[in-house]
Amino acid sequence: MLKDITLGQYFPGHSVIHRLDPRTKLIMLVVYIVALFLAKTWVSYALMLAFLVWVIQISTIPPKAIVRGMKPLVMILLFTGILNLFFSQDGRVLVHFWIITVTTGGVSRAAMMMARILMLITGSFLLTYTTSPIALTDGLESLMGPLKKLKVPVHELAMMMCIALRFIPTLIEETDKIMSAQKARGADFENGSLMDRAKALIPILVPLFISAFRRADELATAMECRCYQGGEGRTKMKQLHYHRNDFFAFGIGGAVVLAVVVLGQFGL
């Protein structure tokens, strides 16, 4: 069922991680990704992994949910791994076959790249799993606030993102419903040539677009009826404030980056 896709889904909860300011979590994700790219050795990877596991643990997100979210990305992961296997020709030769040479250097590089991608994705999952889409857009809007000076319509962009996120589950549900209705009339989405299958999408896409436009129209009317006006002079019901935990988080994040850099200096 389409609904079971968990990529980027919010898991409501009350853990310390859930309660962090969304801006803190966004900044920490960026810091974490930078640290991942600074890490060059297995020791620093182990440190990053330990940090990640610790955060998952206190976030109370079931590890199963993270593994399930990975499923759609298995292909990308494998592709990266295989590509990197041949990228490096250092070290001892393990397999030599026709024009293919696999060395210990290649294997270690492939493993490292895959670990990096896995940890990167897990980190981003932690953000979307512990932060509601609304809080996330609020955080983004606030962080991008300075861009307003450059006439970037930050508030409007945040509002658009917020609405888009809000309607993803609705549209998925709607797609499910329309698909079932057309299947009841004998539509077949699984068999036939590529052309047939592309054609089979028309009975889904047309009603889906019509309903999306109708919803957009209704939403716009409802917003106008409530005199919505974005940007200048608009205040928020929930103001974002940094708390003690946020400063702790920044401290810990900084320490991890520092440790990775120092380890790098020692060639570890």
């Binding site: 209705a181 009841a184 009339r185 028309i202 009975p203 009603p207 019509i210 309903s211």
Partner: peptide
């Protein structure tokens, strides 16, 4: 044959005739 709740949201063809013909065609 199953007629869903609010089935009017599943119409997609250019004419009524072709929409009704979708099932028999399949």
């Amino acid at each position: 044959g199953l007629v869903f709740q609010y089935p009017e949201y599943q119409l997609f063809e250019e004419t009524v005739y072709r929409d009704i013909a979708f099932g028999p065609k399949n």
